[in-house]
């Protein structure tokens, strides 16, 4: 009982220090808030930021679409070229890709089952 009282007193003392630290932090941050002036630019400044960002997003979209289209065209061209010019290689590649996908899926599935 006595020990519990001592522990309680120590705990209260600890809490007091903890709350004092929190208070110090709050006071410091409040002082920063009040004493560091923040200048808010006019509406035009913010409109410019929005316009510039939208322009940048548009440019990015166009670039990504262009890269995607070129890559897709290259793949389709090479596949069609193989199909009409060297059909043997085309069918061998088809077989290899199918086997690879099946093997990869099986290994992933087995890993997942063993993992759980």
């Amino acid at each position: 009982m006595v020990n519990r009282k001592v522990l309680q007193l120590e705990h209260d003392h600890q809490d007091e220090h903890f709350l004092a630290a929190v208070k110090e932090i709050e006071d410091g941050l409040e002082m920063l808030d009040e004493n560091v002036p923040v200048y808010t630019p006019d509406l035009q400044f913010f409109e410019n930021i929005v316009a510039e960002q939208k322009q940048a997003m548009k440019r990015n979209l166009i670039r990504e679409l262009a890269i995607f289209t070129v890559a897709a065209l290259l793949i389709v061209t090479s596949v069609l070229f193989m199909l009409y010019q060297v059909p043997a290689v085309f069918f061998i590649l088809q077989g290899i890709v199918t086997v690879f996908i099946m093997a990869y899926s099986t290994v992933s599935f087995v890993k997942q089952v063993n993992g759980t």
């Binding site: 920063l32 808030d33 560091v36 923040v38 808010t40 630019p41 006019d42 509406l43 035009q44 913010f46 409109e47 930021i49 929005v50 316009a51 939208k54």
Partner: peptide
């Protein structure tokens, strides 16, 4: 665009003070 700008202008001091 104007709505965006107004939103930013209204919240700018709060945002900058937090970042400070």
């Amino acid at each position: 665009q104007l709505a965006f700008a107004m939103l930013f202008k209204n919240n700018y001091p709060f945002l900058v003070k937090y970042l400070i």
